[in-house]
Design a protein around this nucleic acid. Structure first.
Length: 362
DNA sequence: CACGCGTGGCA
DNA sequence: TTGCCAAGCGT
């Protein structure tokens, strides 16, 4: 049977921390951002790690810190260059907030990285988890860093049935961890996450090699596969979309996404929701407002793209236009920036995966 | 405060 | 194929 109350027992927590640290020092992965305690590098890696698997972020991390080795380099870079380095990683507001925070540190903190939790979480993009991670790892502050791994590990360790999507449950687990933090807060926090990533995994946890097996309540009760409890999120809404690719002698017409909402600020092909009774009409009519002489297009394929909260079923229309139309090539698409981009120019702008994968249809 | 916000891996 | 999940944050 599971428990719906989370109790803290000091001695149990002490042994838990001891086991964890011993395991972590022996079993931790060699990750690039573990080669330093520089708060800047820790920060970049932690922002990239939000909702992202470590293996995915590693090449991005290398490229990013090479291009922007310190806060000043990032603060003084143009935003489009920052977004370009984030291209394909998703959740692009992370990159924008990273850039904003770098400017704040550069201008208001004299380039000196804030060295404690309370100051860190005031920066855009740094919330309770990331603030705790940077403060504990780079500055040895005794604060928790509660991510999805930690919620799962602590839930199982205590055979605790609280719904980890519930803020009250998150707070209870945060309090438990805060009291359990030993003298090496950074290693402890990293160890908790590493245990969740390598051993106490969401499915098929490797209890046989777990350093906490002997004192894990869920293991004792045979509940590891039922925990944690997590309420479900609702399903993505499906949208039928029409994409227009205009090709002018190899240069493609790109538009910048609006300032708010999905993929905001990044580049895309013109795209609009289909009018159900008239397939192809919506994109064609929209494009004709900027290209009155638009020739007939053809469908070159379909593409499905799954976002966090919506699914696009895209029908891709292809239009070839004469280079003489370059003279009238509009730099505005509605209110948005727009331009024909040749291969080299295309490579310089941030084109999200939803659109870059359409290039394979050409 | 429930929801908006990307992408890739995996049973 | 489908759904779930991954080192969350802003509003």
């Amino acid at each position: 049977m599971t428990k719906n109350i989370l109790n803290f027992h000091k001695e149990t927590a002490r042994i838990f921390a001891e086991n964890l640290l011993q395991w972590f020092y022996k079993s931790k992965r060699a990750l690039p951002f573990r080669e330093t305690k520089n708060p800047y590098n820790i920060w970049i890696s932690e922002i990239m790690a939000q909702q992202t698997q470590i293996d995915t972020l590693i090449p991005y991390y290398h490229r990013f810190v090479e291009a922007f080795p310190d806060v000043t380099a990032l603060a003084t870079a143009p935003e489009d260059k920052v977004l370009k380095l984030w291209e394909g990683l998703g959740y692009y507001s992370r990159a924008k907030n990273l850039h904003k925070a770098a400017k704040i540190i550069h201008e208001e903190y004299d380039g000196i990285f804030p060295d404690h939790y309370d100051a860190l979480i005031k920066l855009p993009g740094i919330g309770p988890y990331t603030g705790g991670a940077i403060a504990s790892i780079a500055f040895k502050e005794k604060v928790p860093a509660i991510d999805g791994n930690v919620l799962r590990v602590i839930s199982r360790f205590n055979n605790y049935s609280g719904d980890i999507a519930d803020v009250k449950v998150k707070k209870a687990i945060t309090d438990w961890v805060a009291q359990a933090i030993p003298d090496a807060p950074g290693d402890f926090n990293e160890g908790l996450m590493e245990l969740g990533a390598l051993v106490c995994t969401p499915t098929n946890p490797k209890c046989m090699i777990c350093p906490e097996r002997d004192i894990c309540e869920a293991f004792k009760e045979g509940m590891t596969n039922q925990l944690p409890i997590k309420s479900k999120k609702q399903r993505q809404k499906k949208l039928e979309m029409e994409v227009g690719i205009i090709d002018m002698g190899g240069a493609l017409y790109l538009v910048q996404r609006p300032e708010k909402g999905l993929l905001s600020g990044l580049w895309s092909f013109p795209i609009i929701e289909e009018e159900k009774t008239k397939p192809g009409n919506a994109i064609r009519q929209t494009l004709k407002t900027v290209f009155p002489d638009l020739p007939e297009g053809k469908v070159i394929g379909n593409s499905k793209h799954v976002f966090s909260h919506v699914i696009w079923n895209m029908t891709v229309y292809y239009f070839e236009i004469d280079p003489v139309m370059a003279a009238e090539a509009p730099e505005k698409y509605g209110d948005a920036q727009a331009a024909f981009k040749d291969r080299e120019q295309l490579a310089a702008v941030a084109l999200p995966t939803a659109f870059s994968k359409l290039l394979a249809l050409l």
